[in-house]
Design a protein around this nucleic acid. Structure first.
Lengths: 411, 411
DNA sequence: CCCTTTTTTTCGAGCCTCAAAAAAATACTG
DNA sequence: CAGTATTTTTTTGAGGCTCGAAAAAAAGGG
């Protein structure tokens, strides 16, 4: 049951709002913050003076555009880079990437490494992750505020509390509580997030005009993943990270999917599925890993001439169109971002996709559905992790006091 | 962008919370309210004394169970029945039903009427609705507070602002702005809600233990509809009432659906679809109206002996299982309520449904998914409309001031 | 050098919530 | 039957928050 608002919550929430306004706007003046938050100038003045005193915000000289205006120039407020720092860890197929990011969002250190995720035993995989973070954190050249949060992103299913990886296509291992492991190792609060959800978060920051209240980020890579934002908030399942878009059943009893079931969307639209179909292999053939260069070559061939390659992309479009159509039947159409290597071949996918959507309940407005593509998912995932960690610091560490009283009348 | 919390919002929100606590609990004492809201006794005391002064709450003698306890007996607080009233209007196939409900939620007047919705011209349909409401409101025997809200529920698609019916299976007419019409006619704020959404609201009030944060209400009637509650809130689409569950595509190019497309879930699980299949008619046969008694007879026959009737229900289960599986792939499994005449035949549907779900991504926990049935949808819809209207009064009329300031810096 | 314009800070007023104490209302006890 | 214990409700004073208005600050323009 929702709980009453206490008097002290008020200041906390408004503090959080000011910080968030600064993070969003970059270098707003107090007047601008007052306008966007709807709070009075005096309140903003009081709160920002507190925040500056605590070293969370800094006054930077007015933006240059102001010099044309009369009157007292605005003083821009910015996030102090040294107020805190966060670490992002992105684990994907055979690839591990870490970055240290200061409070203002700039990358101050990073390291990337090839690791053989598919065959590594559990201890080694966990060990690699811990070791790479330790190397970056213990680097004597590192000059940041205290590290307040670690956000790890991974392809696959995570639990709804963002603590553990439950299942992932990049490793046969299951149920690794990365968040707990990192927390224990470094004494820093950590989360384990789903990659597509992080892509969605990143898109929301990159292009808030387009990706605001309702939108969908779809990863077209080896597997098919989805991040869904509804009413401005990331939508996660009740138990898991949710959005198993790739495993909606497209054709009951159809092509073999990597998950072991048959007929999933992914079994037609995943890299391995497109490759399998283009090579003329059976739908029952075991999924195989296909590299990005091979996929690009495949797309080039499909563009060049009609043939099994082009047909494979067409069928991928059909499967994706089916999935989106079902989704749109439930939530109404929304902007879609296609991310990943096959997004670069979206021209081959789009016609069949649109045609299929048009035949579904959600497809009534199929003309108005707009797609955007972004071939490289890694930067998006990292950005999403960074923003997730930073906004956590904004809200839970620099505007604390949330539900701390909950346990009170237990005593 | 979310807006800051002003000082005066605080009282408003806490007022709303107290009212809501009373509505939920029935006759809570001030102490109980303090416990559920987390606010202090003094605050509750101040707010409830205001509310009593304004005639919104009344003190009723303590509940009888208290007599065993020592100490000052608790004074129950209850909603004053005469503080306000609301009207519910439920329009379904050939049936129009109106009720006047006092602020405490009791029905004080009602009227039901058979109308030929399928053939009525627009003016007549609208006229009937207005007339029946007028009759109830102008009844000299009616003794309620001022009517503060009209909530109308209808089978079909409504717009996301709850103003208009966009499309409905009960009439060939489209785009009727019932909310605007009723508002203009009676000078009372009105809404036009989707029936399945109202069913979901009603379930949340009837059994909050089971239907709380995430659950699904499915109407198994002539058509198939869905109301979806996620994170405790009704989920509606971005443009429309959303949740066109019945028109997810089960078999591309399959059986003819009432909506004109092919292969929808409804084209296998709607009353007309079950009937059509049981009669051995073609999947291309035009949908026909089937009465509830006929459906009950069909179910009885299917229970008695194996044959086309039983097979028809099995296929309905398959279609529903497919739809739920896709849905569960996106949102994770949640409790389901099956409502409507075919819910009484759920024993015939369930085996195939569970079997199908088990084959989908969302079906991993298919054992744990629980179904509940409720054969009669009308009382649920009315209850949902009533609760929706009453909580609107609670929050917007008796705890006003919401976002009234929004237009301020436009001037 | 003074005036205008715009931004930021200061100050007093008005509310709101909270904690603690007081008051109220009943059951238990001898 | 009176006094005590117990629990609920109300009262009261303190502290904190936001707001509006006025003052102060920091420029450009004439």
């Amino acid at each position: 049951m929702s709980v009453g608002i206490r008097h002290d919550d008020l200041r906390r929430r408004n503090r959080a709002m000011v910080i968030s306004a600064v993070r969003r706007a970059g270098q707003p003046s107090r007047t601008e913050i007052a306008a966007t938050t709807g709070l009075s100038h005096s309140t903003i003045s009081a709160i920002s003076s507190d925040l500056i005193g605590e070293g969370i915000l800094t006054e930077s000289k007015a933006s240059e555009t102001t010099s044309l205006k009369r009157g007292r120039p605005q003083i821009g407020l910015a996030l102090s880079p040294e107020a805190a720092a966060v670490v992002t860890v992105v684990l994907s197929l055979n690839f591990l990437s870490v970055a240290v990011i200061d409070y203002s969002g700039h990358v101050v250190a990073e390291e990337q490494r090839r690791v053989d995720t598919l065959t590594m035993p559990r201890d080694e995989l966990v060990g690699e992750c811990v070791a790479i973070v330790r190397r970056r954190l213990e680097d004597p050249d590192l000059d940041v505020g205290s590290v307040a949060r670690i956000a790890m992103g991974i392809q696959g299913i995570t639990d709804s509390h963002a603590r553990a990886m439950l299942w992932s296509p990049i490793t046969p291992l299951t149920d690794i509580a990365f968040a707990d492991i990192l927390e224990k190792e470094f004494g820093i609060p950590a989360t384990m997030e789903n990659d597509c959800n992080m892509m969605a978060i990143a898109l929301q920051w990159r292009d808030p005009a387009r990706y605001r209240d309702n939108f969908i980020a779809i990863l077209l890579s080896h597997g098919i993943g989805m991040g869904l934002v509804l009413k401005g908030e990331l939508f996660t399942g009740t138990h898991s990270s949710g959005g198993e878009f790739g495993h909606m059943i497209h054709r009951p009893g159809g092509a073999l999917c990597r998950c072991g079931r048959r007929g999933c969307v992914e079994a037609y639209a995943g890299n391995y599925a497109i490759w399998r179909a283009a090579m003329g292999a059976s739908e029952d053939a075991e999924p195989t890993d296909v590299g990005d260069p091979e996929m690009r070559a495949l797309a080039a061939k499909a563009r060049l001439e009609d043939g099994p390659e082009r047909e494979a992309y067409r069928r991928a479009g059909e499967a994706l169109g089916f999935g989106l159509g079902s989704l749109f039947a439930l939530i109404d159409p929304a902007p879609v971002a296609m991310v990943g290597v096959s997004a670069a071949a979206f021209d081959l996918i789009e016609p069949a996709l649109r045609e299929t959507i048009a035949q579904t309940a959600g497809g009534q407005h199929s003309r108005s559905i707009s797609f955007d593509t972004e071939p490289n998912e890694l930067p998006l995932i990292r950005e999403g992790c960074a923003m997730r960690a930073l906004t956590f610091v904004d809200q839970e560490i620099f505007a604390p006091g949330g539900q701390a009283r909950a346990g009170k009348h237990v005593a």
